[in-house]
Write a protein that binds this DNA or RNA. Structure first.
Lengths: 140, 140
DNA sequence: TTTCAAATTTGTAACAATTACAAAGTTACA
DNA sequence: TGTAACTTTGTAATTGTTACAAATTTGAAA
């Protein structure tokens, strides 16, 4: 299935009407699993969608993550990053080079969390921070 | 052991000279396990430390978290929160009322993370989001 | 004690990510 | 075709945080 169709399905599945802009942003996130910021998305889409407004990017990203179509990742304290991959996985951020990438995990659901039964949990984020392989070797 | 002494030990153990301001901030975090923001810390300390500057609060919080004396929590996308409790635990944030609190967890180290051996991991954060007990019951 | 360099703190100004808001444009249905 | 609801847009404002340089404090050597 192409990303165009995937994007449309994703939007429809969470009850969001697939406008041009929403489709472009959703498709971008599915095609670029690079955890882009709102600014990056705006800059990359603006050549093909010249009238696109940055406000629309922000509005759409908020709408999509509120409806669960995408994830908003706050591992980087400076700006929020977005992820079209909503399957369970963790994220790693290098404190030196700033790169952010996915870590596939197993067994997160076996973590015992005291008192979680009293809560209505809608999402869970697991962040690891440290030094990536490249930067690790460059540490003094 | 009183928080004053705990604070001093914490600073010394990570090699930070315990100045008046640093001590005040470290002690505040140990005495207030409420995940305060930099702004809250500044406002609460300023009556007893009238010359305190907000820049000092930010600088100190960065220094402390860089050295591992405290945790910086990015569960709330708006502002960073700080935690003097550096033992393993998770955090929960209610998407309605915005409250952030601790969750005690067991078994996080049994999560299998693919490729983590290639990284130098210095910290790990586990965030849960959803609706707290109070807000859960108020959902339409 | 005095001196002086290094470390720390301070205040202002700048910055950058995000949001508020109202106008303009688009959509879809009566 | 008309119209109301929805969506997008651009500007301006907001806000958390940082840059920077001056002022202050510290601590050790003379």
């Amino acid at each position: 299935m192409d990303t165009r169709r995937k994007a449309k399905n994703r939007l429809l599945s969470v009850g969001i009407k697939p406008s041009i802009q929403r489709m472009a942003i959703m498709e971008y996130l599915l095609a670029h699993p690079t955890h882009p910021t709102a600014d990056t998305i705006f800059n990359d889409l603006t050549p093909t969608l010249p009238t696109l407004s940055k406000t629309t990017v922000y509005n759409t990203l908020r709408l999509l993550s509120e409806q669960g179509a995408i994830l908003s990742i706050s591992i980087d304290e400076k700006n929020v990053r977005y992820d079209g991959d909503i399957a369970t996985h963790a994220h790693f951020k290098c404190k030196k080079c700033g790169c952010v990438y996915d870590l596939s995990i197993k067994g997160l659901d076996t973590v015992y969390v005291e008192g979680i039964g009293d809560l209505c949990v809608t999402e869970c984020q697991l962040y690891y921070k440290g030094y990536c392989e490249k930067c690790k070797s460059k540490l003094t």
